[in-house]
């Protein structure tokens, strides 16, 4: 039995099956990310004045990643438009760029994550706070490349704040016996880092999934273009809708996490 409306739209809805399906899926995604965004906002407005950490993330790197995703959305839609007028070569070139942009995004994000896992904060027993990247750590001492920060603002300040004031850091050796607390800027560091890793990690998984789908349609699944071109073009459109949703999420994530 042939499944109806896989290519042509239903008269009542004006949509073909896959488009109805992707919009239902995207509605559930909006609820997922909406709940996480709401959590972030509630946690932030509920924090004590001056306690919420700021300036912990690298804005230029986040900006580059934003540019990468905006470019990828443009290439997705230009590829789809090229395919609609029968230009398969241009479609393939555009989608290849999209997949490369996705790889670049994930690569840059991995660099950011790696940086956070090597970025430490040390609080000594006499109340001093040191912040910087781990150089070495053994039973006797910890060596950081960073600086001592104002203990009264210790919870809120990061490396960027100090670098702005001309302090680019130096090697600091702290004896293990003097350390009261040491931890990196991973998800367990504080509420902000926890929600940062949750939101960006979930978004990153969506980027990977979207890139895999686009790559599948582009290479192993491209045979359908010869046998059923209209259905193939619909598949490209549906993958493009998902990709745009992923990029729109980042357009909201970037200012909320990096700038505010």
């Amino acid at each position: 039995m042939e499944i109806p409306y896989v290519v042509h739209p239903r008269r009542d809805t004006g949509l073909y099956n896959a488009k109805v399906g992707i919009w239902l899926f995207l509605a559930s995604e909006v609820m997922l990310f909406g709940a996480l965004f709401s959590s972030y906002i509630l946690l932030r407005v509920g924090a004590e004045a001056g306690e919420w950490p700021t300036h912990l993330l690298n804005v230029p790197i986040g900006t580059v990643n934003t540019l990468v995703l905006i470019s990828s959305s443009v290439t997705v839609v230009l590829g789809w438009a090229a395919l609609k007028v029968g230009n398969f070569a241009k479609y393939r070139a555009c989608q290849t760029i999209t997949v490369l942009c996705a790889c670049a995004f994930v690569g840059i994000k991995s660099y950011e994550y790696n940086d956070k896992f090597h970025h430490y904060q040390v609080i000594t027993k006499d109340g001093k706070v040191f912040d910087g990247h781990l150089v070495s750590r053994d039973k006797e001492a910890v060596v950081l490349h960073g600086h001592q920060i104002d203990a009264s603002k210790g919870k809120a300040l990061g490396v960027r704040e100090a670098s702005r004031h001309g302090d680019h850091g130096k090697e600091i050796e702290i004896k293990a016996d003097d350390i009261k607390k040491i931890d990196n800027y991973g998800p367990a560091h504080n509420t902000y880092m926890s929600i940062y890793f949750t939101l960006t990690g979930l978004h990153g998984l969506h980027v990977v999934a979207g890139a895999l789908v686009i790559a599948y349609i582009l290479w192993p699944g491209a045979g359908m273009y010869k046998t059923d071109p209209e259905r193939y073009i619909n598949r490209v459109e549906v993958s493009g809708l998902f990709w745009h949703f992923v990029d729109l999420v980042w357009i909201f994530l970037f200012p909320v996490l990096y700038l505010l």
């Binding site: 919009w23 459109e237 809708l241 357009i251």
Partner: peptide
Amino acid sequence: MSLKAIHILFI
């Protein structure tokens, strides 16, 4: 909503 419409929203 087509890819065209969501792309305009995205831009």
